[in-house]
Design a protein around this nucleic acid. Structure first.
Length: 429
RNA sequence: GGGGAGAUACCGAAGCGGUCAAACGGGGCAGACUGUAAAUCUGUUGGCUACGCCUUCGGAGGUUCGAAUCCUCCUCUCCCCA
């Protein structure tokens, strides 16, 4: 017997409910329902920006409902104008096919596909668009929503001055039809999404209503995840944080969460973990009592990294973090086996230096410059002057410092550190 | 088509013949404080074989002992009038 919980109530305390279509609440309480979220195949990996909506689905399933993840194999070819202020370039079909299959694999990590009766499903809207011809689309879909209605949407209104192509303008019709199709074929009466999807979701419920369906459709949206300092969530100096380990190493992924500010961490732990309200509140109390332990950030990083990567990835990342940031010093570094060292350094940028160069007993500044760790010698000099350069956790205070074989970890590695958080591994061979 | 304004380092913006590798602000990086947080304060922010040298101020020429600064042409941007 399936245990149902109150989805809306849970979203509320997690701070994940921005808006909902009236009645959604009662609709969900009336029994197991099917709901969906669409994902755009604009690249071949999701990034943490999509994580909040994935969690919407995950929590939906946990609450006892049936989640459907819709991949926009067709809509991705059109381009959603929501939240965009300029027309986008179209991706070619091959790229989209590739992206769809890659994203599908990622989503499979989050949802439970074996949990009858509310097992998750993945669908691709290309399947119902590939055989549809334009006349049918215009007669069966386009006829039901007026241009006036469509133009009133924010996503369109914002673009009226700058210009919007007919193609992007039509996007909401396609998404509306997706909803209708799922409604009729999968008995799916609910759509979720980020707040930028509100317009598209209501176009869908409207289409369903005007097509003469007697049972209404529902929807909710969650707020955009933000950072307290106003910068964009999910980006770092070096770019997006991706879910794919090849694009963002598990170590870096783990560090991304560990580095969340206190203020953000209390928000994120509600959105990105499945911890209960009690667990979270207890953690917060413990965190306040001993903030330097960073319990909140650790709990957040561990759970998210486990789900996206694996428990083993977390172990490695935690170990690497302990060595790089903990009190561990040269001795700890030196005592690592080569295999451990490499595991710990996985995800840390690596540079090569010819053994012959190293043996010339050049000053450290020349060696680092040769290895290409820094952009220029001026930069290295400045860094040394400012006390921001360490090798093997030992501060370098003179540009003329010479390195000897004793500095080499396992006879061939140098751990270069810029500031507190940036590490580079130089391999001498 | 006519008239005007402008193009400076990552971005914004001063400078209008030497003292300009170029004020100031933002951003970046680092240091201090701390907790791999936030706030704050400080330093730094073209390159090099470095008390000196080289390359930079839209592009190409020119004037001058000397130009980001003056002149000529070109390219692009913005504004106003038709």
């Amino acid at each position: 017997m399936l245990k149902m919980t109150d989805y809306i109530e849970e979203l509320k305390w997690r701070g994940m409910l921005q808006d909902m279509i009236p009645g959604t609440d009662d609709f969900l309480k009336s029994g197991m329902q099917t709901g969906y979220i669409g994902f755009d195949p604009t690249s071949d990996s999701l990034h943490v920006g999509s994580l909040a909506t994935i969690m919407l689905l995950k929590i939906f399933q946990k609450a006892g409902h049936k989640p459907i993840a819709l991949l926009g194999g067709a809509t991705g070819m059109i381009g959603d104008p929501s939240g965009k202020n300029t027309e986008r370039n179209l991706l070619n079909e091959e790229t989209i096919r590739h992206n769809v299959s890659a994203i599908k694999k990622q989503l499979e990590k989050f949802l439970d596909f074996g949990a009858a009766p509310n097992a998750a499903e993945i669908v691709n809207n290309y399947d119902w668009y590939k055989n549809m011809d334009m006349l049918h689309f215009l007669r069966d879909v386009g006829k039901h929503l007026t241009v006036n209605y469509m133009m009133a949407k924010d996503s369109v209104k914002k673009r009226l001055e700058a210009g919007i192509s007919f193609t992007e303008f039509s996007y909401q019709l396609l998404q509306a039809y997706d909803f209708y199709w799922l409604y009729t074929h999968k008995n799916c009466r609910m759509q979720m999404g980020g707040s930028d999807q509100w317009g598209n979701i209501t176009s869908g419920t409207e289409l369903i209503r005007r097509k003469g369906e007697n049972k209404p459709a529902f929807g909710i949206v969650c707020p955009l995840v933000t950072k307290a300092d106003g910068t964009k969530f999910g980006k770092t100096e070096t770019g997006n944080i991706w879910l794919d380990a090849r694009l963002t190493s598990p170590y870096k992924f783990y560090q991304f969460w560990i580095n969340a500010s206190d203020e953000d961490a209390t928000k994120y732990i509600r959105v990105f973990t499945l911890k209960t309200r009690e667990e979270i509140e207890t953690l917060e109390k413990e965190h306040q009592a001993a903030p330097h332990l960073r319990l909140l950030q650790k709990a957040l990083a561990e759970e998210v990294t486990t789900r996206v990567h694996s428990a083993e990835a977390v172990r490695n990342a935690r170990e690497a973090s302990a060595i790089l940031f903990g009190r561990a010093t040269q001795e700890a570094l030196g005592s690592l086996s080569e295999q451990m060292l490499l595991e710990v350094m996985e995800g840390v940028p690596q540079f090569n230096l010819a053994k012959s160069m190293f043996e010339q007993k050049l000053p450290v500044i020349d060696l680092l410059s040769e290895a290409g760790v820094f952009a220029s010698k001026g930069e290295i000099r400045r860094l040394i002057k400012e006390g921001g350069l360490s090798i093997n956790k030992e501060k370098i205070s003179l540009a003329e410092t010479h390195l000897t074989d004793q500095h080499l970890l396992q006879g061939r590695y140098l751990l270069v550190q810029r500031g507190k958080k940036n590490y580079y591994l130089v391999v001498v061979e």
